[in-house]
Amino acid sequence: MLNRQGGDAGFVPIAYLCVVKELGLIWSLIRKDWMIEWRLKYALSGLMLYLITLVFVVVISFQEISSPVWNVLFWILFLFVGMNAVLKSYQQESGYRKYYLQQLIDPLTLLISKTIYNVVLLFICALLIYGMLSIFITSPVRDVWLFLGTIAAVSVSFGICLTFISIIANQAAESATLAVIIGFPVLLPVLITGVRMSAFTIGMSMGGEISGDFTILLAIDLLLMGLSLWLFPFLWKD
């Protein structure tokens, strides 16, 4: 059991227990989000239908797609699908459920769980877009693992950014329109970096090293995540 001899010795297990409890909370919040999404079905199936339709329209109307165009198209599809997937994050947390959550858990725990959930969702969306595009058109991606790394990194940035944007937009009456207005310009630097990075993976040299772009994304992630953690409690309380 706990060490009773030293004063400080007990600190380690307690801190450990706190972390485990927090992780458990985050995990159960993520599971809750997923279960709601899975049981309601319409949000998830709506998203999938949106994704499939978008890819279909693009493929049918373009017919022939060169590598640079493919690169840009992929990111535009990802932008639209991603925004659709994430910007409704807090819509279900309204009314009584919001009060319940406000009483029950720390806002930071909620933010972290939402961010992780959204990052994973975005990554899955990106994979689906990539997969569907590869089925219909021969994919110009040469270095698949690097490309997967790129979409993972961009998904993280998008997830952090959009999760924060959606709580801001959720405060307003016209939240869907506002979210797009606010979200697009904020996402642009990430999107440009993403386009540059995937250009490397399809063999178009944009100058410089891809590791530099990863570093920039990481710096943006840290900056935005820090700000989100600081500002979220102000937005969550009523």
Partner: peptide, 20 residues
């Protein structure tokens, strides 16, 4: 909250991306 967020995004926008 948005104002703070917006100012922070100006830094990558105006000082990082143009250098790439």
């Amino acid at each position: 909250a948005y104002n703070i967020f917006a100012f922070a995004t100006l830094i990558p926008l105006l000082y990082v991306v143009p250098r790439l």
